[in-house]
Every structure is written in C-alpha cells, then in structure tokens.
Write a protein that binds this DNA or RNA. Structure first.
Lengths: 149, 149
DNA sequence: GTCAGTGCAAACGGTTTGCATGTTT
DNA sequence: AAACATGCAAACCGTTTGCACTGAC
C-alpha cells in the first residue's frame, strides 16, 4: 500500500468512525486531496473531481471540505485577496502567498515561534499558525520584477 | 492645528499634487479615516461617511479608498474570512485578527524581523509585513472560551 | 425504509464595473 | 468646456443555503 493509499484509507476510516456516509463524491474529493501535493482552492478541487465525476456540484465539494475540516482531516487557509486553499491536515505548518502570482508555499511553523511568544506575552493573543497566509513576493516574481523595472 | 487636522491636510495636499480632484465624498472619507483610530471595513467607512453625507454610495467609497491606496496614503489588509480593513498609512505595522470576535489589532512590525529574515534566506521570499493579518484568538475571547468550556 | 448526503438554483456578502449624470478644474 | 468623479444598478467572485430527490446504511 502506497503512502497515498494509506492516507486515503485513514480518512475514510475516520469518516466511518464518525458515522459519516462514504459516498462517491466524498471518495472523489478525498482522492483529489490525497493526490494533490499542493494547496488547492475549492474551485480547483471541484474541477479535479469533475474530471472523474462531472456531475458533482461545487456546493457538494464545499460541504465535503467542511465536513472533513470538522473532523480535523482537512485545513484551509485564507490567502489575502484570493480564494481560500485546502489541503489534508498533516504536520502543522504555516503559509506564505505571493501577491503577484498567488502561489501558496508552506513554511515550517516553528519560524513563528518567536512571533507567537511575543504576541502571547504582549497581547495575550494566541497565534493560529495555520489559518492565514502571510503575504509577500516570491523569489521568481521578485526576480521578474527586478528585471522589468 | 491639531494632529488630525495636519494629517488631513497632508492627505489633501498629496491629492492635489497628483492632480486628483478634491470632492465632497473624498473630504468625508478622509475625515472618517483621520478620525477613526482603529481599522475600519469599507462598509464601516461608508456608514460613517453617510452619517454626514447620506448620498455617498459604497462604490464611491471603494473607489476613493483605492485611489488613496494608489497614492500610498491608505493601506488595507485582509483578515481571514471577513472583510478587509482600511486605515491611513503611517508607521508600518503588522496585524493580527481574532478569529472569534473579528477585531483587528496592530502589532509592531519588527516582531516579524526574524520571520522575514528566515523567509528571505530559505525561500527568497520578500515578506509584506502589512498586507495580511495573522489569525488567532485574542485575550478576551481566550478568557471567555476558557470559562465556558 | 430511513435519513444523511446530493444537485440544482437561488441567495449571500464583499467588491468591482458600465453607464449616464453631475462637479471640479 | 473638458475631464474627471459620482450614483445607481447590475455584475462579479467565492461561498452558503433551501429544497426536493437520491442513494448509503
């Protein structure tokens, strides 16, 4: 059994344990999430799912993502101006999104350790390292902009 | 001349310097931004403006905010799930937004120094300290939740 | 057979846009 | 007078919801 298959089975198992029904759309969404190793918007998930099951509706995808998120199997994060991105929950990490090309990158969550500590001690604020992506400009776009100007 | 008056004059001066017209809606928006010492959504700006000029439309407010932002007089930042918040550009700072009560707090931008340095050296990513608010739970909501559970 | 899950279409909140009209310069 | 700014309404995008129906258990 490959690693992807293992992850898929684990997700399905958790669904069963919570008395959720295993339906074709759910299988398809899980398949996409397991296969996609980057961060997908709900719309991208829908389009991937529809390549296999064209009749699955966007609202169903949203509902499935929400259900999976409720079971802590999926997390989403907001990327500034654009649509939220979803992916399977795994090792906790942070996100940064390029303002120019809108690609989201993962960053190790411990780079936020100091920020988290400081927010806690100064404001009593408990940082959620995962939920919102920092903005900035990625290496490629930086380079491209530098050349242009 | 008070500090607020000075800021207002500076904004109007910059508008004139860029051959932008000084109109009643613009004056009203600037007035609101100068007077508001916290972070307002576009809708809040609109409602405040409409208390003085009920006929100013939301789209005009958006256009004015956009224009002011183009002149670097205003900045906005995205706060996760909810509407973006706007305020006069000033000393650069970061933002954190409470996931529970949706209030946005300013944080000194130098708490991001280490994160910025690390993103730069590992990914070549240039952090925009301002543009997206970190998520988490503020002190009050933390306390409230702790009591409830 | 029951009920959770689904598809569809319509509604939503935040934001943007087209166009005819009004106001600043 | 010319150019720009505005109000209105309609469109837009991402997301959520109401409802009748279907399919997993």
């Amino acid at each position: 059994m490959t690693l992807d298959e293992a992850r898929r089975e684990e997700v399905l198992k958790t669904l069963r344990e919570h008395a959720k029904r295993i339906t074709a759309p759910k299988r398809a969404v899980v398949e996409v999430l397991v296969g996609a190793h980057d961060h997908l918007t709900a719309d991208e998930v829908t389009r991937h799912v529809q390549q296999v099951r064209p009749d699955v509706s966007p609202s169903t995808v949203y509902r499935i993502l929400e259900e999976l998120e409720g079971l802590a199997l999926v997390v989403h994060s907001h990327t500034g101006h654009a649509a939220a991105v979803y992916h399977l929950a795994g090792r906790s990490h942070g996100h940064v999104t390029c303002e120019v090309c809108h690609v989201t990158y993962e960053v190790p969550s411990d780079i936020f350790n100091r920020v988290a500590r400081e927010l806690d001690s100064t404001l009593g604020f408990e940082l959620d390292r995962h939920h919102v992506a920092l903005s900035g400009i990625c290496a490629q776009c930086r380079h491209r902009l530098r050349v242009k100007l």
